[in-house]
Design a binder for these strands. Sequence first.
DNA 1: ACTTTATATCGTAATATTGCAATATTAAAT
DNA 2: ATTTAATATTGCAATATTACGATATAAAGT
Lengths: 108, 108
Amino acid sequence: MGATKTEHFTDAQNQIATIAKALGHPARIAILEYLLKVNECICGDIVNELPLAQPTVSQHLKELKNAGIIKGNISGNSICYCIDEKAIEILNTYFLNINQNLLKSKCC
Amino acid sequence: MGATKTEHFTDAQNQIATIAKALGHPARIAILEYLLKVNECICGDIVNELPLAQPTVSQHLKELKNAGIIKGNISGNSICYCIDEKAIEILNTYFLNINQNLLKSKCC
DNA sequence: ACTTTATATCGTAATATTGCAATATTAAAT
DNA sequence: ATTTAATATTGCAATATTACGATATAAAGT
């Protein structure tokens, strides 16, 4: 008990859930929005932006990276992070599709 | 320690994170997709659909409801669940906006 | 009134997440 | 070579989530 039963669900369902889960924390939403704003990929700046300690930010970045939401490239001393378009596009098409199907009918 | 520092983030950031978090589990994605398919709002059927015990499903439904993703209406003996368009639309516009802003430039 | 059916809640074990201090790693700068 | 700067990892405490058996609740059928 206690662990999510991922094996009982489809790959597609697990994929969406994984991406959604990674975005299920305000700090990670804040990171996404900051990366969107500054466009260029910074890392130490993110630590300065957020009200969290450096190891905590590093951990959040790792989770976003594992979910495919951001990319990190070594740039000399520091590491350049940026948004990975693919994950956002997956979410985008997914919810757009749901929204369109919803418009066709109502219930309750 | 251990608890999310929601108070340090904006309401908008917390709202998106809350909705995303609720969708961050394959069972809840499966529920969303089932409700989308059957359109009419059933509940016991969801229990039959999912590979999880009834209390577990009930708990997932509660979380989806708390996040505003589904609605539940009493219908005599049983309870009729259905997707709440509002939350989906919030996600939809949010990620559409991010996607559009991303197209304007690349990095890394 | 009693039973059945449908759903929710409680209690609890297993596991996962959050956050951070301390420490490690790695590359640049001196 | 040593120091500095940037980031990651480790270890751990606090908290949250996941799952389910047992039980409660509430309406419908008998």
